[in-house]
């Protein structure tokens, strides 16, 4: 279980998160939606300790992430797969080496590594791409390799940072199906941050909207679709005019 408790995070004068609280239950896929630049990715990076909160805490399986020592953080990270917005593949390594890197860190033997690489690439329909370099792959393929690298670790949690951003609708749909398939086959708990509502409706068990640094509404897909909150409605319908201050929501408050 992942719990965000009253998380505050500021960069310089920009207050990005202010009282962000959210519970992600075991086995569910929680989609966090919000304007671009509203702090969704910042919240996600707190889960793996890439960022530490100024106030508040993030708890994963009873462990407060920012209080973990180096060994504790390594142990925690071995249970979490992170799919980056632009895949973040190591461009000097082949697809196989990208997938094997995390496994080698976990001291997995080379035969198991080879099997895991094959299985993970099969799960994202990229068999045969083992010896290609990231520069030789399309945007959609890179995202799939990023997903394969995360699931090769057999994590308990999968965190997706804007998994469909920058993709054409068909490739985005393929990524959505892969996320659903991954959850069904591996039974992982997931957090997906996105502003792509098609993706959110397809993969979510619950949806939470981040607005002005805090959760504005959280509920099932149906609850969010039926919401009367004008800010959430404007966002999910993609209307340019309405109650929400898109600029303010994106930039956070400046003090």
């Amino acid at each position: 279980m992942i719990v965000f408790r009253n998380v505050h995070k500021r960069f310089g004068t920009k207050q990005v998160l202010q009282g962000f609280s959210l519970d992600v239950k075991e086995g569910e896929t929680m989609v966090v939606i919000g304007y671009s630049g509203s702090g969704k990715s910042v919240a996600l990076k707190h889960v793996v300790g890439l960022l530490a909160p100024d106030e508040g805490e993030v708890e994963v399986d009873g462990r407060i992430v920012h209080q973990l020592d180096r060994a504790g953080l390594v142990e925690l990270r071995s249970q979490i797969g992170f799919v980056f917005q632009f895949a973040a593949l190591f461009d000097s390594m082949t697809v196989r080496e990208n997938l094997a890197l995390g496994l080698r860190r976990q001291k997995v033997n080379s035969r198991t590594i080879e099997e895991r690489v094959r299985e993970s690439l099969a799960l994202v329909d990229l068999m045969g791409a083992e010896d290609r370099y990231p520069a030789e792959l399309s945007g959609g393929m890179r995202k799939r390799v990023g997903l394969a690298r995360a699931i090769a670790l057999r994590p308990r949690y999968l965190l997706y940072d804007e998994p469909t951003t920058g993709l054409d609708p068909v490739t985005a749909a393929v990524i959505n199906e892969l996320m659903v398939r991954t959850r069904e086959r591996l039974g992982v708990t997931g957090i997906v941050v996105t502003h792509d509502m098609t993706s959110a409706y397809r993969v979510a068990d619950r949806i939470a909207m981040l607005y002005r640094g805090a959760i504005r509404q959280v509920g099932t897909v149906e609850q969010v679709q039926r919401t009367h909150d004008p800010i959430v409605r404007q966002f999910i319908e993609g209307r340019p005019e309405g109650a929400a201050d898109a600029e303010g929501a994106a930039a956070g408050t400046t003090r």
Partner: peptide, 14 residues
């Protein structure tokens, strides 16, 4: 800037 350093950290490397 391409988040490869963050990716290294999430793979439990220092």
């Amino acid at each position: 800037v391409t988040e490869q350093v963050d990716a290294l950290e999430t793979l439990a490397y220092n």
